[in-house]
Each structure stands twice: as structure tokens, then as C-alpha cells.
Write a protein that binds this DNA or RNA. Structure first.
Lengths: 124, 124
DNA sequence: TTGCTCCTCACGTCACGTGAGGTGGC
DNA sequence: TTGCTCCTCACGTCACGTGAGGTGGC
């Protein structure tokens, strides 16, 4: 079942709903990380709800510090129709977990800075 | 009281103790974010314990996503000998708090991705 | 027809990474 | 003297930002 025309969204709406900039969306298209499902006759990018879903996954992945290339590889796995080897999943999950720990360390560092800042603020 | 020669550290030791790369330390020197207190006759950068302390503050600030210019401005306040206006501190603290909230949002997004990844891993 | 939205170059930016070729210092 | 450490260019990279000049579509 093809997506009806009425459900297609232009880049501006996608930017608003994803929180990503127009430039970022065009960049993701250029490198092939997320290509809109269609173009209008005039060349406007047209995104489906499904495109938006995929963009939201990408946006959630971003804070883990992946390169766009890495994200593309992970997305390939997530979107694959064919079964993916368990070892593949394990590797991806292990790296994600490691990146999550690194992010936790950053939060700790940030909190140490905030503490330090409050000390200076309250008792100069 | 001047720092005795014996306490001066070369860039390699500072890199190890701060977790920053040699290139990053040289970059921070170039832009004036953190200039080592001395140079050897041969031109080697020589850092004091105090330099290291300041670097550790910078490293804690980094996860909040400040630009190097912004970090330099904040460091100026933190290191100022003269009293800093309360309004200045308030502005700095408010921005830091906002950045902390943004970081928390990123953690939430990361966790949503991890959850999504586990769903795909456990029940494909 | 008027706006607002979108388009493609193409150069700029930020924070470094990465050699190349050379020297310092225990 | 030998290594290991450090030095300064200087170009490269990654992920976009920012106009410039032009067109689409309700």
C-alpha cells in the first residue's frame, strides 16, 4: 500500500517535528543516512511518517556520539528485513552500552563542574 | 613562592593525567584557553600542578557543550582575583543549569535508543 | 501576482586529527 | 650516540552553518 500524497511532508515540517535543522536534514540526505522517500515535481524533498520515525531513531542515537557513518551502519541493521546474526546484535549492543557508560561519565564530570561553580557562587 | 623546577610537567604527563590529547593541549595553548606556565630553553611546554587543576576544570565543563571561547570566559571569572558581580555569577550559573538540563535530555534520548535496541535484540 | 518555502552550490567554522620534517634532553 | 619526547607548520576531517542566487506551489 503506497503512502497517499496527503501524508507526505516537506522538509520544514520534518525539521519542526524532529528538532533537526534544515541543513542537517539535507546533509543526512546528501550522505545517504536518511533519504526522503520522494521528491515533488519541482524537486522538493517529501518525507513519509516512516521517514520521520527513522529520523527520530537517529536523533536518539546522536547523544551516544556515533559518527554519521556508524549510525548508518546501525540503521541498516535495525531496518533489515533479513535476519541479522546474533553476534552482530551483540557487537552493536555492546558498543551502545559502552557509549552509554561514557555518557554517564560525562554527566558525572558536568555535575562536578556545577558543584564547583556553586561553591564559587555562594562563598566567594 | 615560585614553583620549583622539579614540579614542572611536560605535555605528555599532562595529557596522561588529564585524559586530553597532545593536540588538544597544544590547541588550548594556541587559542589561549590554557597556556602552560613555562617553557624549557628548548621550547618544551612546562605545566604546573595549578595548570593541571585548571585543565581538569575545563575537562569537566566540556560535557556541557560550551564552545572553547565560552569556556575561556567562564575560566576568567573562576580565576579572577577581583570580586565578580553577583549578576555575572547568576548568568553563568543559569546557563550552566540550562546546559545540564539539555544534557539530561540527551541521556533520556540515549536511553530510549538503548531500549529500542534491546527490543530488536531480544525479539526479532 | 505575491509570499513563503524550498532548491543547489560553495565557502566558512569549530575542534581538533594527522602526518612531515626537525630538534631537545636525560 | 641512541631513543624517546617534544616542537612547529600545514593540510585534512567531521558535521554541519551560512549566505548567494534562483525557483516551487498554494
Amino acid at each position: 500500500m503506497a503512502t497517499p500524497e496527503s501524508q507526505l511532508m516537506q522538509i520544514g515540517e520534518i525539521a519542526e517535528r524532529s528538532g533537526l535543522s534544515l541543513r542537517t536534514l539535507r546533509h543526512y540526505d546528501e550522505i545517504g543516512l536518511l533519504t526522503p522517500s520522494a521528491r515533488s515535481d519541482g524537486g522538493f524533498r517529501l518525507y513519509t511518517e516512516d521517514d520521520l520515525e527513522r529520523l527520530l531513531v537517529i536523533r536518539r542515537m546522536k547523544p551516544l556520539g556515533y559518527s554519521l557513518d556508524d549510525m548508518q551502519a546501525v540503521m541498516q541493521l535495525l531496518l533489515s528485513d533479513r535476519p541479522v546474526a546474533a553476534a552482530q546484535w551483540d557487537a552493536v549492543a555492546a558498543e551502545a552500552a559502552q557509549r552509554r557508560r561514557d555518557l554517564a561519565t560525562k554527566v558525572e564530570m558536568a555535575d562536578e563542574f556545577l558543584k564547583l561553580l556553586l561553591e564559587r557562587t555562594n562563598q566567594p
